[in-house]
């Protein structure tokens, strides 16, 4: 087979049948036997939701945050809620600290003046949100720091297990008598 006919046959075979004819495969040295053993299935692409599910599962496991958020607490007294939340808050915070290192976006004192413009400052509206008297053009020199912002400095989550069903945030618990 000439290169041209090979190319054309391959092209149409793939276009209409989705597979190469056997002789073309042989010619191209693409024999299945010669091919490397079926490579490990490609790593499942991480979907945007995976990290979120993993984090929710961790917060539920370590601090029962999902239980708390899903509970109807309207009928309980502040006292009762306070008692539960104190411990929950501490565990939740511990878990967060362990897996995500948080830092302020602007490390300043809230309520004090911070400079925004400067020779090296590149303004990014995702990092700094301007409030109040936002200038029509250009940047203001600075302003009062109202909220320091949060930035995840480092995320240190355990590797995802491909076989695990991430949609299970917490297993059901059954006590065997």
């Amino acid at each position: 087979m000439g290169r041209l006919s090979l190319a054309i046959r391959s092209f149409f075979a793939l276009l209409f049948k989705g597979a190469l004819p056997g002789d073309v495969v042989t010619k191209l040295n693409l024999d299945r036997k010669a091919a490397p053993p079926a490579a490990a299935p490609p790593k499942p692409a991480v979907e945007p939701g995976h990290g979120a599910l993993q984090m929710l599962a961790i917060l539920q496991r370590d601090s029962r945050l999902v239980d708390f958020l899903m509970e109807d607490i309207s009928s309980y007294s502040d006292d009762q809620i306070g008692a539960a939340v104190r411990g929950l808050h501490e565990q939740c915070r511990e878990a967060l600290h362990r897996y995500v290192r948080l830092a302020p976006v602007i490390d300043g004192v809230e309520g004090s003046f911070v400079r925004l413009s400067g020779p090296s400052a590149v303004f990014d509206p995702a990092r700094v949100k301007l409030l109040g008297n936002v200038p029509a053009q250009g940047l203001p020199e600075g302003g009062l720091l109202r909220h320091k912002g949060w930035r995840a400095d480092k995320v240190d989550l355990p590797p995802l297990d491909a076989k695990r069903d991430l949609t299970i945030l917490a297993p059901a618990e059954v006590e065997v008598e």
């Binding site: 029962r64 239980d67 708390f68 899903m70 509970e71 607490i73 309980y76 009762q80 809620i81 008692a83 539960a84 939340v85 104190r86 411990g87 929950l88």
Partner: peptide, 18 residues
Amino acid sequence: HPVTILGKGTGVVGGTIK
């Protein structure tokens, strides 16, 4: 120092023993 035992089941606040 408070010692709380969170509720069993999905109710955290409801079953809390203080």
